[in-house]
Design a protein around this nucleic acid. Sequence first.
DNA 1: TTGAAAATATTGAATATTCAAGAATTGAAG
DNA 2: CTTCAATTCTTGAATATTCAATATTTTCAA
Lengths: 147, 147
Amino acid sequence: MAKPSKENTPITEHLAYLLAQANREINRQLELRLSKEGVPVEQWRILKVLSDGNGHSMGELADAVLLNHPTLTKMIDRMVSDTLVYRVQDPNDRRKVLMFISDRGKVLCKKLNSLAVDQEEHILESYGDKSTSELKRLLESLIDSSN
Amino acid sequence: MAKPSKENTPITEHLAYLLAQANREINRQLELRLSKEGVPVEQWRILKVLSDGNGHSMGELADAVLLNHPTLTKMIDRMVSDTLVYRVQDPNDRRKVLMFISDRGKVLCKKLNSLAVDQEEHILESYGDKSTSELKRLLESLIDSSN
DNA sequence: TTGAAAATATTGAATATTCAAGAATTGAAG
DNA sequence: CTTCAATTCTTGAATATTCAATATTTTCAA
């Protein structure tokens, strides 16, 4: 009798794969909506984090928007060119740069938020209220347990 | 009284964000393990899919391993150089290329599988058996409902 | 049968990301 | 104080990904 080994389980049953697949699909849908405003998902995240009006350092921001440090720097360069955000050197620690959202950024962020909400509603409809909140809960707890 | 609008919900409560965050974290952990063999996660996926011994067309494979078509082509080029896989033209439809895993690929795949299983066990320990299977179930159903 | 449209895979140029190194500032130990 | 390590951000080169175009083969309608 063969040892019942986990090594042969199909890839579609691995948690890492299911997460990647679900993320890819949901992200693709969101991307599609946001493309109406010509903005990549990551820029929406940045605007949303900055829309509390406070200054956020690059390091803080990189964590929050799930981007590597150098990637964020270059994306921020573009957003500064588009006058969506601006840099201010942190007076308390001059190694740091504080990012702020501009008025133009705020206007854009509002539009993007409503596109993103559209998507969430669409998911709620096809996937169900209960499943959605349960899934969110489980994801949060997975993230917590991974730190 | 202000309209209770969803537009202001913090990004950390969006399903798309939670999925991205969880995926990033779990993927990072898996990447770390697989790096012991110097293999990116996508190559493990490819080997795993091919390890049924059957030929898989590039299109089929691209879907299965969550890669765009041109990206897959170039990754397969590398894996062919490393003699992990090989191409055969499909005799029944000469537009297609069938991919097969080599013996060397099989040996590597076994090692990678065990590294991946390590990770799943580690998740099971810290996150719990019940949560894990419930999360998998919900992810599968989300993916289903998105098609 | 022929010719146009669809399907499949690859290529090359443009773009984006990453890795490793660098510059500037702060912290802290001696 | 001064110097050396740590922190923060950016840069440049190397690498990887993507988009649009191409080549090949098949399908199917006329």
